[in-house]
C-alpha cells in the first residue's frame, strides 16, 4: 500500500528534485563566478577599502544562519516594498551566502600562487584579463576544487531550507506528502535518497581528488 502511495507522489517529487537541482545549479554558477571575479580582483592588492568591504561582507554572510538570511530577503523585501517571491529570495539569499564561502576558497587558493607569476605576465605584456585566463585561473582551479565542491554540496543541502518560505523543493513536497498520506518514513526515506542521489557524484568526485595535490600522509595503522 505504501508503495502505491509513494508511486502516486513520484511525479511531484521528481519535479521538486528538478527544482532543487536547478536552484542549486544557478546558485553554484552565480556564486562561483562572482566569488572568482572578486578573488582575482583582490589578488596581489594591498589592503584597500573595497577589499576590506568585501571581507566584511563575506564574514557577515558566513556568520549568520542561512534561514535568517533567507528571511531577510523574503520578509525584509516585503517591508521595503520589493516582493522577491519565494524563489527569488532563495536565489538572492543563498547566492550571497555562496559568494561569501566561495570567495574564501578562491582567495585561499590564490595565496598559494607566487605573486611573481603575475608580474612575469605583466613583463611579457599580457593584459590583466589574459593574466587571469592564462596564468592564474588554471593554477587556482585545481587548488580550489576540493573546497569548491564541498561548498557546492552544502549549496544543494541548503536549498532544503527554502521549504521554510514554501518553495516547493524536495523537502517541502515531502512535508506535504507526509501531511496528506501520514506515512512519514516512506517519504523521508525517498527525500534523503534523492539528496544522496544528487550529492553522491559530487562527493565521490571530491573523494577521488584526495590523492592529487597535497597528497595523503604516509602512515600505517597502529597495532
Amino acid at each position: 500500500m505504501d508503495f502505491e502511495v509513494a508511486l502516486a507522489w513520484l511525479p511531484r517529487l521528481a519535479r521538486a528534485a528538478a527544482l532543487t537541482i536547478g536552484l542549486a545549479a544557478a546558485i553554484f554558477l552565480i556564486s562561483g563566478a562572482v566569488a572568482m571575479a572578486a578573488a582575482l580582483a583582490g589578488y596581489g592588492r594591498k589592503a584597500s577599502r573595497s577589499l576590506y568591504a568585501f571581507e566584511s561582507f563575506s564574514a557577515f554572510f558566513r556568520s549568520i544562519p542561512e534561514l535568517v538570511v533567507l528571511f531577510l530577503f523574503y520578509f525584509g523585501g516585503a517591508q521595503v516594498g520589493i516582493d522577491f517571491g519565494p524563489i527569488g529570495s532563495t536565489l538572492i539569499a543563498f547566492s550571497l551566502v555562496g559568494i561569501a564561502y566561495d570567495y574564501q576558497v578562491f582567495k585561499g587558493a590564490l595565496t598559494a600562487i607566487p605573486l611573481g607569476q603575475m608580474e612575469a605576465g605583466r613583463a611579457l605584456g599580457l593584459s590583466t584579463l589574459q593574466i587571469y585566463r592564462a596564468i592564474l585561473v588554471p593554477q587556482m582551479l585545481p587548488l580550489a576544487k576540493r573546497g569548491w565542491i564541498t561548498y557546492a554540496i552544502a549549496t544543494v543541502k541548503r536549498v532544503s531550507i527554502a521549504a521554510a518560505v514554501s518553495v516547493s523543493e524536495i523537502l517541502y513536497v515531502t512535508k506535504q506528502a507526509i501531511a496528506a498520506t501520514n506515512s512519514p518514513f516512506v517519504f523521508l526515506a525517498l527525500a534523503v535518497g534523492l539528496y544522496i542521489l544528487i550529492v553522491s557524484p559530487l562527493l565521490i568526485w571530491n573523494e577521488l581528488s584526495i590523492g592529487q595535490g597535497r597528497g595523503r600522509s604516509m602512515r600505517r595503522r597502529p597495532g
Binding site: 523537502l171 515531502t174 527525500a191 534523503v192 539528496y195 544522496i196 553522491s200
Partner: peptide
C-alpha cells in the same frame, strides 16, 4: 549524515 540535509 553528510549527504542528507540537517532539516531532513
Amino acid at each position: 549524515a553528510r549527504a542528507s540535509p540537517v532539516l531532513a
